[in-house]
Design a protein around this nucleic acid. Structure first.
Lengths: 218, 218
DNA sequence: TAGATTGTTAATCGATTAACAATC
DNA sequence: TAGATTGTTAATCGATTAACAATC
């Protein structure tokens, strides 16, 4: 049996949240219909790319008319799995972890940080947003009850690999890693590394390039 | 006169910080020499890709030997412009802004958040890491003195575009945007959008995909 | 010299774009 | 019907990979 290709290319997947964001803004503005040209413009891509991206999801519009904003918004939200509430587990109740727990944007999209963990006894019992801070060694036990499948790592670099291992043992297979170190994804898991220092370094690269150009009269 | 291509492709630029991170770890471990195969393995890329990336920077190793760790580390740091200290200006002294100001990783790489800004009178005068929180309307005046060229936006979505405009007016042309909205980069500026909700949405996409597969016995 | 590894070329792969027949 | 816009095909573009002559 031939299995149809199930997943869109990663560049497409990464653009979907932007499309959804634009569509929700249009919904809020009571816009009923949008063409690929208009939405692509809002999202900063070409119309052809936008239509191609939708084709991977099997989403169709109406030739000559465009796309129904509410319907398209719901379809993309569906593809992203944004149905109901997803409970998330966070390890590392430092400043960044605390900021993430209090982040209002997550709740709006259906993500709730249900529990936080830390090794620092001073932090245990604190409340961060919805989450209470638990001792790190209770992760396995507590997630047996919560059943979170998405985890956020917000610990120092040295602790990251161990935390990922423990998460995987607890059944968490989709992980967002803010620790400033690459974590190789264990078999069958998806790890997205978000390294804030890397982003500044990339900016610094382009700044250096531009300033060398300046200096040499370019 | 033929101008040689000055910039590496973006995918290459984005990998450079990872290479540097691996090299610094090797330096700390007193490793003198590394082959492209070894480093590529640490960084999670292929050896050919690593060598190709270096070729864009004009960095050369020794055939039959490999690369001198210290020298290569310094070369990549140089390409990234990590020489001396870069002062950075931050707007938005909320939880995320405060976490960024206190982030130890920045200082180690030569980035210092020199001043923070907010519109909330209650926050003015607070100290976040090295930075003092100033009233937002003083940005232009204060940066005339500080001369920061890199800025970080950590305000709500509705305020982001205005903040970017003000930054550009103050001479800041390299911007890291944490506001949950795309900001079109004004002419001559580089804006990198880091949307934390987007990252969770992408994880959710892959989770949904995997769980559908499960359900249908895939 | 023999063995190892680079730097680069050419082949491959995959994503983006342009164009247009199909459709409302 | 005429005008507009989609969905998709084929062409283009650019990045990745494999292979190997050059080099230490």
């Amino acid at each position: 049996m031939i299995t149809p290709k199930r997943t869109a290319p990663e560049p497409t997947v990464v653009r979907l949240p932007t499309y959804l964001q634009c569509l929700r803004r249009l919904e809020a503005a009571k816009v009923a219909t949008v063409s690929s040209a208009e939405l692509a413009d809002l999202a900063g891509v070409t119309a052809a790319q936008f239509r191609k991206d939708l084709s991977y999801l099997g989403i169709r519009g109406r030739p000559g008319v465009g796309y129904d904003v509410q319907q398209l918004s719901a379809s993309i939200a569906g593809a992203l799995g944004l149905t109901g509430m997803h409970s998330i587990l966070l390890v590392g109740a430092g400043r960044l972890g605390a900021a993430l727990c209090a982040y209002p944007g997550f709740e709006q999209l259906g993500f709730r940080i249900a529990a936080a963990f830390d090794t620092d006894p001073a932090k245990i019992g604190q409340r961060l947003g919805n989450a209470e801070v638990h001792p790190a060694h209770e992760l396995l036990k507590i997630n047996a009850r919560l059943g979170c499948r998405i985890g956020i790592v917000a610990v120092p670099a040295t602790a990251a690999a161990g935390v990922v291992d423990e998460m995987v043992r607890a059944g968490i297979r989709w992980i967002l890693n803010f620790a400033p170190t690459r974590v190789p994804a264990p078999e069958g898991t998806v790890v997205r590394d978000v390294d804030l220092t890397h982003e500044l370094e990339v900016l610094s690269y382009y700044m250096t390039l531009a300033c060398q150009g300046e200096a040499s009269g370019q």
